[in-house]
Simulated assay, not measured.
Amino acid sequence: MDRAAKRELVTNLNSVLKDTGLVVVAHYAGMTVAQMTEYRQRLKEAGGRVKVAKNRLAKLALKDTTYETISDLFEGPTCLAYSEDPIAAAKVSVTYAKGNDKLVILGGAMGTTVLDANGVKALAELPSLDELRATLIGLLNAPATKIARTVKEPGAKLARVIQAKASQGEAA
């Protein structure tokens, strides 16, 4: 890779990291191309990306971002998994690492918060942004449903009483 290509890689990665919600750093030694492609595809479907870069170039790209504190994780064959959604990259990486022992999560960062491997795993257990939105909508919708049911109930009781009296009158 010539200097211009390296400079462009560093610049592009730096600009991407400035707009990223979460970065996960992992070792990928021993993974086949097919396994790495599958990992990239899963992360892409979740709204993230995987980037493999030389450690020195990755450290240069981390400069002037909130993720500069994780530069000590870059030793050996490492890859960056990142996403705007703070949960997506962690969830996909942890799930994939469970099925493939060659992907070893080293740690990561969410904004200025540095996470170790256990922190990334704990983050992966949280519900995603879409799941949280669905839960919130359900919680907001539940009181309206209960109010409608409560308002409707006295009328329904009255109708049942009238129906019962009518039935008794017909039976007699």
Rank of each mutant, 00 (worst) to 15 (best):
M36Q: 11
V23P: 07
Q35T: 05
V33R: 01
Q35A: 12
L22A: 01
D19T: 07
V23F: 08
T37S: 13
A29E: 14
A29F: 13
D19Y: 06
L22F: 13
R40Y: 11
Q35W: 12
R40S: 05
G47C: 12
E45N: 06
D19E: 15
Y39V: 07
L43K: 05
A34P: 04
K18G: 15
V24W: 05
A46T: 01
G47I: 07
T20Y: 06
T32R: 06
A46F: 09
R40P: 06
R42H: 12
L17R: 10
G30Q: 12
T20V: 14
G47D: 09
R40T: 03
V25A: 08
A34F: 03
L43N: 08
Y39A: 11
M31K: 00
V16P: 00
V24A: 08
E45S: 06
E45D: 12
V33S: 08
G21Q: 07
R42F: 07
A29I: 04
L22G: 02
R42L: 15
H27V: 00
A26H: 07
A34Y: 01
Q41C: 00
V33C: 03
V16H: 06
A46K: 03
T32P: 14
L17N: 14
Y28W: 11
A34K: 08
V33K: 02
V24D: 10
Q41R: 14
M31N: 04
R42E: 13
K18Y: 02
K44I: 00
A26T: 07
T20D: 01
T32E: 10
R42M: 13
V25L: 07
T20Q: 05
G21R: 02
M31H: 04
H27M: 01
M36G: 12
V16I: 11
V23G: 04
D19F: 06
E38F: 15
